[in-house]
């Protein structure tokens, strides 16, 4: 049996579930927030094997061969959080959320011997480490600095164009009837006026003039790539997320040169990821630059415009490893 671990808001699972049903393969979906809604019972009585009951039915842990792990957590986006946030004291809610993460972690360790599509130890990656690892695998990366002094920043932008981005996942800060959007931004001399002499450690990268942008969905050795001609539109030139969806730039299937596909494979194998989405740039200097890897990427954005059967590929991968 295939176990699908995700959150109840992840619609990517719906499509994979349809394919598993199509191929007549048994599966169980467990959402991270299910234990907060549905009947759930985990019994640990060593030396007896652990027992898990979900929605009143026993889950045969030994019958599980493959596990697909995606965004198993993120309580803040769950229906539970939505319902509970105005009824439970914030500190108590914080405590429940920490307890919940121990439960999820415990569940993952019960499944340690299974075939994982994204191993639990690999669901979070470090942006800086990824640059080092990509470089080691033979991918070109933009020149990168972490600075905390305005003087260092000034020295950099006097030598060339630099962008800044978040060291962690970017976020939106809500404010009044709008929000502050943390997009990748070019650092200008005027921006320096907005700073104090010191700042918290910040990621700055050499701006790589793009010919086009690439999204690569990697699955077990295969690269499914899409080129995005974000340069066609000023808005999305630096950050594709800032795109105007009423007039989107061209997004088309792309064939990576074999040596780049091999380097991607080396890189993903090296960091222990069998699945993930990569952001690359085909630069005006002709080189391919690695920017980031996201272990739980939104591959629908590659699958639909390029007509790649990615949901079916994932289902088939899980079925194959569930059997063996």
């Amino acid at each position: 049996m295939i176990l699908l671990l995700s959150s109840s808001s992840d619609t990517n699972l719906d499509f994979v579930i349809e394919w598993l049903t199509f191929y007549g393969h048994p599966y169980l979906r467990l959402n991270a927030d299910d234990p907060l809604h549905d009947a759930f019972h985990l019994a640990l009585n060593p030396p007896e094997p652990p027992r898990l009951m979900v929605r009143g039915a026993e889950v045969e842990l030994s019958a599980i061969g493959a596990v697909w792990l995606r965004q198993f957590g993120n309580l803040r986006r769950s229906r539970y959080w939505f319902d509970a946030k105005n009824r439970v004291r914030p500190d108590a809610l914080e405590q429940i959320s920490r307890e919940q993460s121990i439960l999820l972690g415990g569940l993952l360790s019960l499944l340690s011997g299974k075939h994982w599509l994204t191993h639990p130890s690999r669901t979070h990656v470090n942006k800086l480490d990824m640059l080092v690892q990509a470089g080691r695998a033979g991918l070109v990366v933009p020149q990168t600095h972490v600075i905390n002094r305005k003087s260092d920043l000034r020295a950099l932008i006097e030598r060339g164009d630099y962008i800044c981005k978040s060291l962690y996942e970017p976020m939106f800060l809500k404010d009044g009837s709008g929000f502050y959007a943390m997009f990748t931004t070019k650092v200008t001399h005027e921006d320096l006026e907005l700073l104090d002499d010191e700042l918290a450690p910040s990621l700055v990268q050499r701006l790589v003039p793009k010919e086009y942008e690439l999204r690569v969905f990697y699955l077990a050795g295969q690269c499914y790539s899409m080129a995005i001609f974000s340069q066609q539109r000023a808005r999305s030139a630096l950050d594709f997320r800032n795109v105007d969806w009423t007039d989107p730039p061209r997004q088309v299937p792309y064939e990576l040169p074999p040596e780049i596909a091999e380097a991607v494979h080396r890189f993903m194998t090296g960091i222990g990821l069998n699945c993930g989405s990569l952001d690359l740039i085909k630069a005006q200097d002709g080189k391919y630059y690695f920017l980031e890897v996201n272990p739980a990427g939104q591959f629908g954005m590659v699958a639909f415009p390029c007509n790649y059967p990615l949901y079916e590929k994932i289902a088939l991968h899980l079925i194959e490893h569930d059997k063996s």
Binding site: G178, F179, L194
Partner: peptide, 16 residues
């Protein structure tokens, strides 16, 4: 301002 990182400081306001 010095308590913040660069990408936060430069985050642009977008009205909804």
């Amino acid at each position: 301002r010095r308590f913040h990182s660069l990408n936060l400081l430069l985050a642009d306001y977008e009205p909804i």
